[in-house]
């Protein structure tokens, strides 16, 4: 097994799994505790428009993805906070709208769109060294911002009303959080793809909530879970020759379900 590490693509894949888990662990915790899973799913799907844009312009789709996902995060946040439309409805509409834009762009792009499936379902083995640099930069940005505004994010996620009374610019912080989610999605897209991202964003965080009641520890634990499961899934997918993204999700879901059942059983015994 260890000999596979001599391949560049495998080393990149492992580094990707770790870099992705850092962003995913930190931001995933916010997504779970703030209960913004569906809006995050919306941003993820809507950012498919950015992938399409990248193909259409003939640039690395990752560079189309970054501005487009940030833009959809801002639109989604503003629409849900300011208009009378419910957040749920706004999410649903923008979710499909972004995907539709992506499909049209890809259709307009002459020729075949190579590795389109990578963006939809992920393929960690296709991560290039330049992709890794982008991921590293995004990770650094996310860590710095969360470190700087830790108190504000905590107050905003815990109690928006009190946070605004105490002087936190709640709407701005919320939009900033959505932008961080957008960047995390960019980081995760090669790992599991647009469609599976939401599982990677939520499962490690939910699992870690069973073991700690401290926000910071929850983040550390989610990073560990994320990295552990991604590497396990990656190895399994290599051994069984099955798609990596889906395998990672299945490993995670498997552990989560076993944990859930075990938890239920032991609780019953105690009662």
């Amino acid at each position: 097994m260890i000999e596979i590490l001599q391949y560049d693509f495998m080393r990149n894949a492992l580094l990707t799994a770790i870099l992705a888990s850092i962003a995913c662990g930190i931001i995933g915790v916010y997504v779970v505790v703030k209960k913004i899973v569906s809006i995050s799913g919306g941003i993820s799907h809507a950012s498919f428009g950015g992938v399409g844009l990248g193909y259409f312009l003939g640039i690395n789709p990752l560079y189309g993805l970054i501005p487009f996902s940030l833009f959809s995060a801002l639109v989604m946040g503003l629409v849900s906070k300011r208009s009378k439309m419910s957040e749920d409805t706004a999410t649903g509409i923008l979710w499909s709208l972004g995907m539709a834009i992506g499909i049209i762009f890809i259709n307009l792009t002459p020729g075949y769109a190579p590795d389109l499936m990578t963006y939809l379902f992920g393929n960690i083995l296709t991560v290039s060294t330049s992709d890794l640099h982008v991921m590293l930069a995004l990770d650094a940005l996310i860590v710095v911002i969360v470190y700087a505004f830790y108190k504000e994010f905590m107050a905003m996620c815990f109690d928006e009303e009190f946070a605004s009374v105490i002087g936190v610019a709640v709407e701005r912080m919320y939009l900033l959080l959505l932008c961080l989610i957008a960047l995390t999605i960019v980081l995760l897209i090669k790992v599991v793809g647009i469609i599976l991202i939401i599982a990677l964003l939520t499962m490690p965080a939910t699992l870690s909530a069973h073991y700690t009641h401290n926000l910071r520890n929850m983040m550390y634990l989610s990073i560990f879970f994320g990295a552990f499961f991604s590497i396990m899934g990656l190895s399994l997918s290599y051994l069984l020759d099955i798609p990596s993204g889906a395998t990672i999700i299945l490993v995670m879901a498997g552990v989560y379900i076993i944990h859930f059942i075990y938890d239920g059983l032991t609780k019953k015994v105690h009662a």
Binding site: M154, F158, E161, L215
Partner: peptide, 16 residues
Amino acid sequence: SFNLNFPISVWEVVLM
């Protein structure tokens, strides 16, 4: 309006 399941201690709430 707080989030009951939020992972936060009494001490952290007051410090807020």
